[in-house]
């Protein structure tokens, strides 16, 4: 699994950095590296752009798993002098990485802005580098055992529990100009192959949002 990110447009990032000069860039070496928005590539990309615009890059580092608070605590401690010097931190990571840094630094540096350089898209399945697909939305109540291992929430454009809808034409979905497969036809075909059409004919209850419709956490220790 990879948290899929894409680069923000340069003007948007420059706007967020308009009041600062000295910048520390933290680039994530894990998922974002795979998406070419972080890692050495993302670091070079943003360093070049910001230097050309006259910014002072006080430090640029590629760190594995920026989303892990423990890693960030350890690694940020090692570059505390540079962090102290920087007016702002730019993160070439996913939204989790950016917020991990915010949480780790906010006590010591409550006034230091942490700016994200990326847009986080989804949890993705990798076909190959440059081709990532959303196949799970982390709904909290997995249906895959009932739907032939194909997720209706992520593969149906409407996340329907009882599809296909009237927007299906020849197995394709109305969203995206009939180019993508209808998730519910994929489910039907798969369950048919498995000899489990009884699972397809089952009337499914709506998704229960009572636990997943607000802040979520998993705490077991």
């Amino acid at each position: 699994m990879v948290v899929i990110t894409t680069k923000k447009e340069v003007p948007e990032v420059l706007e967020a950095l308009k009041d600062v000069n000295k910048i520390a860039i933290i680039s994530c070496g894990t998922c974002a590296a795979l998406c070419q928005t972080g890692g050495t590539e993302g670091l070079k990309y943003w360093s070049d752009i910001l230097e050309e615009k006259g910014y002072d890059i006080v430090v640029g580092a590629v760190i594995e798993e920026v989303c892990d608070n423990r890693v960030m605590k350890k690694d940020l401690r090692k570059m505390d002098n540079e962090i102290a010097e920087a007016d702002a931190i730019l993160t070439a990571s996913c939204g989790l990485g950016t917020q991990s840094i915010v949480e780790v630094l906010s006590n010591k540096y409550p006034k230091k802005p942490v700016i994200t350089a990326n847009d986080t898209q989804f949890m993705g399945m990798t076909e190959r580098i440059g081709r990532f697909y959303m196949r799970c939305q982390g709904c909290g109540d997995c249906l895959l055992n009932e739907t032939g291992g194909i997720c209706p929430i992520a593969t149906c454009a409407k996340g329907l529990m009882n599809g296909p809808c009237g927007g299906m034409v020849n197995g394709k979905c109305e969203v995206g100009n009939y180019e993508r497969d209808c998730g519910w036809v994929l489910i039907y075909n798969r369950l048919k192959e498995l000899g489990k059409l009884d699972l397809y004919t089952k009337l499914r209850e709506p998704r229960d949002w009572s636990e997943s419709g607000h802040q979520r956490e998993v705490v077991f220790r």
Binding site: N162, G163, P164, G171, Y188, Y200, T201, L203
Partner: peptide
């Protein structure tokens, strides 16, 4: 609808 069976079974629901 094509596949038709997928639609027929859906009407059952």
């Amino acid at each position: 609808a094509d596949p038709m069976e997928a639609e027929i079974l859906k009407i059952g629901r």
